[in-house]
Design a protein around this nucleic acid. Structure first.
Lengths: 136, 136
DNA sequence: ATTAAGCTCATACTAAAGTACCAAAATGAC
DNA sequence: GTCATTTTGGTACTTTAGTATGAGCTTAAT
C-alpha cells in the first residue's frame, strides 16, 4: 500500500519535471524536442518496469505463505503437521519416526489420519494437496 | 526469443510514431506538446509494464524455471520426465501408466531409472530433489 | 469427574512401491 | 547399415506404505 502511493507520487513528480524540462527546451530551441521525448519514453519505460517488479515481488516471490489459519481449518494437529513435513522432505515412515522419536506405527497412524483430512490416497498426493492449500 | 524481438519491434515503431506526432503538433501549435508528452509517458509506462510481465512469467511466476539444460545434465529422457511429473502430481504407477498408455511395468522401469539419476530412494524424495534441481 | 480429543503403540492384513534381471522393438546418430 | 540409447514390457521378489481395529495414556474443557 505505502509503496504504491510512493510510486505514484514519484510518477507525478517525474511528469511535472518533464513538463518543465520540455518548456525550457522549447524556449531555448526546438531541436531538442525529440531528445526530450526519448528521455521521457525511457524514464517511464523503466518506471513501468520497476512498478511491475514491486507488484510481483509481493505476489510471486512469496508463494509459500504458510497460512496457520488454514492449518486449523483442515483440523491438522501439531504432530500431523510435523509428519506432513517429514513426508514432504522425502522421508520414509521409519525415518520420520526416528526423527520424532516415535515408533513407525505411530507415524502410520498419523499418516492415515492425515490422508483423511487432506482427502489423499498417497503420500505424494498429500504433498501436492498440502502445497496447493499452502499448508507447507 | 520471438516474443522479445516482437516487443522490441513494437517499441521502436511506437517511438517513430510518436516522433512524427510531435512534429505535426509542433507545426500546428505549441499548446499540445505537453499532451503529447503525457501520451508518450503513458504509452511507454504500459510498454514497460507489459514487457516486465512477460519477463516475469518466464522467470518468477514459474519459480520452477524448467531448465532444459539441467534436464539433459541429469540425463533424464523425455519419458522419464513425463513419469516424474506424474509422480509429482500424486499419481500411482498404475495411474501414470493409464495416463501415458503404458503398462505399470514400464512405469516401474522408468521410476527405477529415475531414482538412479536423481539419487533418490523414494518417490517423495524424487519430488523433493527434482524441485530442488528445478527439473519440475 | 466425565468427556472429548490428541498422542502413542501394536497386530494383522492388503496394496502399492521398489529392485533385479532379462529382452525385444524403436529411434536417432554416425 | 550399425551402434547406442530409449522405450517398452515381463517375471519374481523384497520392502514400504497404507488400512482396520483396538487400546492405554494425557490433556483441556465442561
Amino acid at each position: 500500500m505505502k509503496k504504491t502511493v510512493f510510486v505514484f507520487a514519484a510518477l507525478v513528480i517525474a511528469l511535472l519535471c518533464l513538463f518543465k524540462l520540455s518548456k525550457y527546451a522549447h524556449a531555448s530551441g526546438d531541436a531538442s524536442v525529440e531528445l526530450i521525448i526519448a528521455v521521457i519514453a525511457v524514464v517511464f519505460f523503466f518506471i513501468g518496469i520497476r512498478l511491475n517488479k514491486n507488484s510481483f515481488s509481493k505476489d510471486a516471490s512469496q508463494p509459500k505463505n504458510i497460512d496457520s489459519k488454514k492449518i486449523t481449518e483442515f483440523g491438522l494437529s501439531k504432530r500431523e503437521l510435523e509428519v506432513l513435513n517429514g513426508i514432504a522432505s522425502g522421508l520414509s515412515n521409519k525415518e520420520i519416526g526416528e526423527k520424532l522419536f516415535l515408533s513407525e506405527s505411530t507415524i502410520k497412524t498419523h499418516v492415515s489420519n492425515l490422508f483423511v483430512k487432506l482427502d489423499a490416497k498417497r503420500r505424494t498426493q498429500a504433498i501436492q494437496k498440502a502445497k496447493e492449500m499452502r499448508l507447507i
